[in-house]
């Protein structure tokens, strides 16, 4: 009861903000201006709450933290087939994986920070197409899967500090002639639609006139089908995901991850843009995992030990790039970091 007026106030002020921001983008309102306005609106809501209701601890919370505290529920966005990051291993409807373990650590951290030990977790499956809008419109509070942090996406959402770093490489038959990218001239090469690898492969094809036939499959599983059924001689993707697909093969030993990495990608968890307190809480939770060395246990669990559902071992030791990321956490994209 006490919170109702403040909630409504926040709701309406955010609604009016929406229109302003929609118009604002035409007038090229800067992000800072928009942020200031959000902060002002939310401050207004907080003050209203403080005046109308008795001053309670939630008064200083804003944005997602307030929403989570008030509703007693946090919604986690996850994937269904990003092995071993976030995927289904059984019929429980709950995901498992490296990124999911990090998500769980974030939830535990929030429970402490918000003083809400019985915080409920709701799972929301996302795809590569739905993940950004669902974070933006408030359906999903935090998405951890295999989402690359890049500059285009930073226009729409904020990224946590990086949780993983991959190189984009190739998966091919072990004893084949296809060891690296120059070997692929004039061949059929598959990659997954909507990924950075797709962009890189198409650019490489255009720039170096390699005459490759680039096939864009709808997900990693289907890309691997194309490779396994012989429609493509190689599959370009993030190396960790390639190891995951290889583990699913009929005969995993027939395949190998090969080739010079064409780019490095940092995965991050996505949160709503401009919600600094919530982003900080998420970052703190992840950095705590790095500081305590807990991350090594999580890494080993998913990359060097048998994983569900089939008990396969990816045998994918931690890369130098990831060690570096864990030592110096950053929320920048991989190419921003270098330049």
């Amino acid at each position: 009861m006490l919170y109702t007026p403040s909630l409504e106030y926040t709701y309406f002020s955010l609604c009016s903000l929406n229109e302003e921001s929609a118009n604002g983008s035409i007038k090229k309102t800067t992000v800072e201006e928009l942020l200031m306005r959000i902060v002002r609106h939310l401050l207004g809501a907080a003050i209203a709450a403080a005046v109308i209701s008795s001053p309670v601890m939630a008064a200083e919370l804003t944005g997602t933290l307030k929403k989570v505290k008030d509703s007693g529920t946090i919604t986690l966005g996850h994937r269904d087939s990003s092995i071993p990051f976030s995927y289904f291993a059984d019929a429980s409807g709950k995901p498992v994986g490296y990124s999911h373990d990090i998500q769980v650590a974030i939830v535990e951290h929030l429970k402490k920070e918000l003083g809400a030990p019985d915080l409920k977790v709701r799972y929301n499956l996302v795809t590569s197409q739905t993940r950004i809008p669902l974070v933006q419109n408030g359906t999903v509070d935090v998405e951890c899967g295999s989402t690359t942090n890049n500059v285009e996406r930073q226009q729409q959402v904020d990224f946590s500090v990086g949780i993983f770093e991959v190189g984009t490489r190739l998966l091919a038959k072990k004893n084949s002639a296809y060891k690296d990218f120059p070997d692929l001239k004039g061949k059929n090469v598959v990659t997954t639609a909507g990924t950075t690898s797709e962009r890189l492969l198409k650019s490489m094809n255009a720039d170096k006139q390699m005459g490759m036939n680039v096939i864009s499959a709808k997900d990693h599983g289907e890309s691997f089908n194309m490779l396994e059924s012989g429609r493509a001689v190689a599959f370009m993707m993030d190396d960790a995901l390639l190891a995951g697909e290889m583990a699913k093969a009929k005969k995993p030993t027939d395949w190998e991850v090969t080739g010079t990495p064409q780019s490095y990608e940092i995965y991050g968890c996505m949160v709503r843009k401009g919600d600094a307190p919530f982003k900080k809480a998420v970052d703190d939770a992840i950095v705590a995992l790095y500081k305590s060395g807990e991350i090594n246990k999580i890494y080993d669990k998913w990359f060097t030990q048998p994983i569900p559902p089939k008990g396969l071992n990816l045998q994918f030791p931690m890369s130098e790039e990831l060690k570096e990321l864990i030592a110096n956490p950053t929320d920048k994209a991989a190419d921003e970091k270098k330049s």
Binding site: N18, A22, S25, I26, Q136, Q155, Q156, K273
Partner: peptide
């Protein structure tokens, strides 16, 4: 919703 429109 905090969306960054860009029709260009």
């Amino acid at each position: 919703m905090n969306y960054n429109w860009d029709w260009g």
